[in-house]
Each structure stands twice: as C-alpha cells, then as structure tokens.
Amino acid sequence: MAKKAKRQNIIYHIATFILGIIMIYPLLWMISSSFKENADIFTTMGTLIPPKFTVENYIEGWKGFGNVSFATFFKNSFIVAGIGTIGTVISSAIVAYGFARIPFKGKDLWFTAMMITLMLPFQVQIIPQYIMFNTLNWINTFYPLIVPKFFGSAFFIFLIIQFIRGLPLELDESAEIDGAGRIGIFWWIILPLIKPALITASLFSFYWTWDDFLGPLLYLNQATLYTVSLALKNFADPTTITNWGAVFAMSVLSLMPVLLIFIFFQKYLTEGIATTGMKG
C-alpha cells in the first residue's frame, strides 16, 4: 500500500511539473530567443538552448528608436508606476480606515457606490476623462496617469478594509480611552498593523501600472515620454521590424520588474488574489 502511494506520488509530481513547463514554455522560448543570434532565432526554434549565446540583442535593443533609448522608457515607467503606487496606497489606506472603523452618516451608501465602481467598464469614463485632461493641457504629461491615483483605488480600499476588519476593535477602543483621536488611532495603531495589506496593494499597484498600455497610449504621444509598454509596442511595429532578437530582448527586460516582484513576494500576490478575489 505504502509503495503504491509513493509511486502515485511520484507520478503526480512528474505530471504536474511537465504540464507546468508546457504552461510557461512561451516564456522560456522568449527568454532563450533573446540570447540567440538573429540568424538562428527562426531556424532553431525547436531548441531552447542558443547555438551561439549572445547578449548582442540586449545591447542593440537598449538603443531604442528615434534617438530615445530604453533607459528613458524605463525611467518613465518607474516614475509613473512608482509615484502612482505611493499615491494610491497612501490614499487607499486612509479611505479604508474611514470605511472600516468610523460610524458616520451615509457610510453604507458610499460604500455601495464604491463597490459598484469595481464593476464599471472603463469605457464609460475614458472619453470625458480624456476631454478633461485635454482641457487642462495635460496631454503629453504624466499627470493623467498619476494624479487620479492619489484619490484611492476601490480595489485596494476594499483589500485594506478587509484587513482592518480582522484587527481586534479593542485596540481602537483602548487608544480612545487614552484620549487618542481618530487621526491618532489611524496613524499610531492601525497603520503599523496593516503593513502586510499595504505591501500587497503596493505590489499589485506597481504591477498593474507597469503593465498599463491604454493610459500611456491615450496620453503620451512623444517618444521621450513613452513608458516601456508603449515603447515596446512601437519598437515591435510589424511593418518595420527587422531585428527580432532585439524585440525579444527588450520584451524580456520589460517583464523583469514584474517577474522580480513575483519571485520575491509571491506569497503576498497569490494570497492577495485568493482572499479578495481580485481581477485577472
């Protein structure tokens, strides 16, 4: 019996592992192609091991296009995703505390409104938003991508609310008896305790902003302002593309921040999705 269970166990692991490799094969193929010489990429598609290992694609690709290198695109992406993430996490935490702990008039109404916005298609908002930002002369600036983030994001507010609800109410109450006000309780008691939720929210926010394509497509029309995702799209323009190796190399680089976050903080991401049922 034990022997049979052990064999079943081994079969399970082998099958799960092989299927897993098939699942991530496109990614592996992309990485391996980025290290192949251009002439080899399409003739040796069947093998993951480059016949002649080269980093030339990375050097060529990094030069970018139109005299703008990928250094600029990465800098832009880090600015937008970095500032946006800070703004969204701080504002979401403040709002979450209000919803989770303070009884006030009209709370249920606003909370319901917020939950409905989670299901709202972005299409009904982008046209007036575009007109608004256009009127403000914000086209070709990072403002349309960053400023709205400072008003909290329903997803993260909800995530943090759920987390705060798990904290014992006695903490707030005893602080109140000691004479602390709401702001004091939030700052001294709640904020230090919700760090895990803030980390999860930061990771998701950074990852989604980094990946965002439509926002930069609408608001950034100058190559010097392009984020990585928009730059990559133009870099890989099917009508002019000649250097596939460079495209693969820059594609891999563009995924690196997200992959690194995933490798180091996997637990925060997968548990965040499982507990809040976040999008995908």
């Binding site: 990614l27 992309m30 990946d211 995702s229 928009l230 990559l232 563009s254 995924l255 992959l259």
Partner: peptide, 11 residues
C-alpha cells in the same frame, strides 16, 4: 502574471 503585457502580445 505576464499574459496581459505588451511583451507577451508582441511575442
């Protein structure tokens, strides 16, 4: 994680 990115779309 990567499927929604421009990189994967291009590939």
């Amino acid at each position: 994680l990567i499927g929604g990115s421009v990189a994967v779309a291009v590939v």
